[in-house]
């Protein structure tokens, strides 16, 4: 089962925090900080995508050498895309390689939603990020691994939402985020520079 999905940038700013297993808010923050600390120390050019030394919050008592024997092992698997880290916290029922594929699927789905996805897109379209993730993972279970299906479901959901919306919402843009794309491309470049 997938316990949590954390997306943050190279400065440790959160872009999405999703916990499928209930965890107190302060601990969520602390975990994010610890994971960021560990992930940012690693060199993604030649190091593996697994956090070997787990953050102290997740250590189950003894951090002795034999914690590898522990079958209940929680794994932290991450992938780095440009300025963002996509981090999945999973238990031993998930295959490491499959999760890496899943992250790739996730990013591909985002890429398809945004044409060419960048961190800026995800910052300002946090809801999109949430809904794409929701179509891939539901309650910690993977429900869809096909990029086409994911994007189709997201589209359908959006269409339906707009269709039944009240008068105010009908005034909003109906083309999928196009207005946003344009807006972000023109208006926010100086924010990007500021980042």
């Amino acid at each position: 089962m997938i316990h949590a999905v954390l997306i943050f940038n190279k400065k440790g700013q959160p872009r999405l925090i999703k916990f499928y297993t209930p965890v107190d808010l302060p601990k969520q923050r602390l975990l994010l900080e610890q994971v960021y600390e560990l992930v940012s120390q690693r060199n993604n050019d030649f190091q593996s995508s697994f956090l070997v030394t787990p953050p102290s919050l997740l250590l189950n008592g003894d951090n002795s050498l034999n914690n590898i024997d522990n079958d209940e092992g929680i794994q932290i698997i991450y992938k780095n895309y440009a300025t963002l880290f996509f981090t999945f916290i999973v238990d031993e029922q998930e295959s490491e390689l499959a999760i890496l594929d899943l992250i790739q699927t996730f990013v591909e789905a985002l890429d398809r939603c945004f044409a060419e996805v960048s961190e800026l897109d995800l910052i300002f379209n946090w809801q999109t990020l949430e809904s794409v993730l929701e179509e891939i993972i539901q309650g910690g279970m993977v429900i869809e691994t096909n990029v086409g299906n994911v994007v189709a479901s997201v589209d359908e959901l959006n269409r339906a939402s707009q269709g039944t919306d009240g008068p105010v919402s009908r005034l909003t843009s109906t083309s999928l985020g196009n207005a946003w794309q344009a807006f972000t491309a023109n208006g926010f470049s100086h924010w990007a520079a500021g980042q």
Binding site: N125, S131, Q162, V168, T172, S175, G177, A179, W180, F183
Partner: peptide, 13 residues
């Protein structure tokens, strides 16, 4: 995918 609250909404408001 659209945003839930696109800029035009401001104008409407």
């Amino acid at each position: 995918m659209t945003s839930l609250y696109a800029p035009r909404m401001e104008d409407a408001k």
